[in-house]
Design a protein around this nucleic acid. Sequence first.
DNA 1: CTGTGGTAGAGGAAAAACCCTGAAGTGGGG
DNA 2: CCCCACTTCAGGGTTTTTCCTCTACCACAG
Lengths: 222, 222
Amino acid sequence: MKPAEPIKIVLVDDHKLFRKGLISLIEFINPHCTVLFEADDGLDLQQKINPRNLPDLVLLDINMPRMDGFETLQWLTRIYPSVKVLVVSMVEKEETVVRMLRLGARGFLCKDVEPKELGEALISVASKGFYYTDFITGKLVHSLQQPNTAETTRSQIILTTQETEFLKWACSEMTYVQIADKMCLSPKTIDGYRNSLFEKLAVKSRVGLVLYAIRHNLVTLA
Amino acid sequence: MKPAEPIKIVLVDDHKLFRKGLISLIEFINPHCTVLFEADDGLDLQQKINPRNLPDLVLLDINMPRMDGFETLQWLTRIYPSVKVLVVSMVEKEETVVRMLRLGARGFLCKDVEPKELGEALISVASKGFYYTDFITGKLVHSLQQPNTAETTRSQIILTTQETEFLKWACSEMTYVQIADKMCLSPKTIDGYRNSLFEKLAVKSRVGLVLYAIRHNLVTLA
DNA sequence: CTGTGGTAGAGGAAAAACCCTGAAGTGGGG
DNA sequence: CCCCACTTCAGGGTTTTTCCTCTACCACAG
């Protein structure tokens, strides 16, 4: 690294207190860094980013209102490919990690890592352009070895309009007969949709349907 | 305040990076504070807390594994009533805020407040013993004006250990017979818990149980 | 024109979920 | 000591869910 040029950083996270804390932490563990600005989410970043003073590094959260980490990363790599992105998130699902890496993330940090690791990641991304830990490579290797799980499997799963419609009703206390009534269909047809979903989603019961729908945000829980 | 005695603080949050950031921030905005220790969750706090060197103030998160903010606050107010608790959480649902205040929280901060407000809250709780913003009083007043919603209704609902245990298993694809097996009980006993829960939670089917459990964060969806 | 896939549905059977009533033991509070 | 709440469980019933095979129509691609 060249001590003459500080690492220019931008923070994107919807929790102000976390951002401020992170800034304070970064300045403490690595005074060589300078924070250009902060953003609440992807949209805010798009407005604040200055093409004539681009950051070296963006610390990006995933769960954000309006424009989330996935969209933001896609936009960044398309518009400003030179900007390196280090994902900082509390989720550590394999699927999420792998997806972010595919979209061009230079590293992935969980929100409960040691500050020391954050410092190392900053330096690594700024100098070498990436920061891949065993945690990340582990997830990657595993996802390559098991191309049948979530990521790959789910990309194949395509539900028809009727199936989706039924799935929503299934996440209620209605019986299948009542659902059939609501959808103006024979209970036997509902029977067919259910079996079709059981196979597609690899579940074995109605509870499985409900859990799947909720996990994949196919229904909105009030 | 007495400048001679620093405010002794303990942080309870499952995200290390957030904790470290918060510490760094606190030390910056108020050097008068000293952080005794940090804990990952309520259980960790129980182990680390020292009765001969109690903190003045605990900054407590709500969503935590193992032992969450509600349980932790209950335990703290029962065992160490002198310790003041300031809740720092990202949720800002009225029900949650009101519930924490009822359990004895001295204030409630959302994770996206300004650091300035954090500083004010620290001082206010340490000196006056509380920190109630318009945000909080607003929620309180509203909950008093509408005592018919969740809070009141749910405050009556008390589940036994077994019922809670069963409820968690019910949120899976296991049949009741399999659950009975897991819990080392007769299927008939499970039958009883189910009926008891149906009545307590005002639901009519297993799907209703699942929806209730998820809506009220009684189970953790992976 | 034939195969594939979505839609819609029937009959029948087995399994699971649901709903009663009743009851025995345990442990704490009045 | 009695009542109450929690836990445990049984018998015996109905309803719902689940599973299986099989038919039929329509549209669209090869």
